[in-house]
Amino acid sequence: MSDVAVTPAAVRRPDGVWARLRRRKLALFGMAIVVLMVGSAILAPWIAPYDPFEQHFEGLSLYGEPLPPGGDFLLGTDLLGRDLLSRLLYGARTSLIIGVVANGIALVIGTLIGLVAGFFRGWIGSVLMRFTDLMMAFPALLLAICLAAIFQPSLWIVAFVIAMVNWVQTARVIYTETTALTERDFIAAERTLGASTPRIVFKHILPHLIPMIVVWGTLGISTTVLLEATLSYLGVGVQPPTPSWGNIIFENQTYFQSAPWLVFFPGAAIVVLALAFNLVGDALRDVLDPTLRGSN
């Protein structure tokens, strides 16, 4: 009788990721924001009310000051009389491109290092993980500022610099997970059956790591967006006139006492985007990581 005495929970077919994600209001909220932001970044040329580079004559007051929100310019204008809303919409492109590219590079480096170190261990593993420890001890932002300031920063340099300081977390997580996986019986079974190392790594280890990569990839975009904004705010990130949320604040900072909207709208945009990816990533972690299930 013991084989039929299963609990109802075990009988129920396990829900898909999407079904479990859908039950979380915060995750849905985050996803909605992500879709909205990505959509407006892609559609920027069609939905932006003005050209983001055009300096409107009527965009400045009689005294040459930027215009507050309202009127012809929905979110006001900046120091040069450019439409803030249009610049923010185009700025979303910058943030998302860097978010995706930098985070993608970081994810590949981190996964590769963690996977190789965790699978082969031995001296390769030790060298790689000691190097990772070393990178953890680096003051990351200082390093990024230094690199970005000295190379002539462009969009791609900024993405590269961010990737260089951001792969470490992923490497450590993937390493821990890979070492645990290589100890499992099914890997030993594969080995006994004579499977080649690439086959084991790509067919059996990597698929198990994908949930973790997805989670860290999502959370990482938020970190990347924040780092890009910070570098651009310091003037060593994306260079004006290319709009980025960080450099809009950098450019207009001197006027922020009299024109606070020039800091608040881009600032809010950064927070909302980073928050959205954090919410989605956190929910994904709860849903995908079986070790955490039930911890809430």
Binding site: S222, T230, Y233, G246, V263, G267, V271, A274, L279, D282
Partner: peptide
């Protein structure tokens, strides 16, 4: 969640 998603300079300026 909001506080961990905010960049330092934005909070500082606010």
């Amino acid at each position: 969640f909001v506080t961990v998603s905010a960049p330092q300079f934005v909070v500082a300026l606010l």
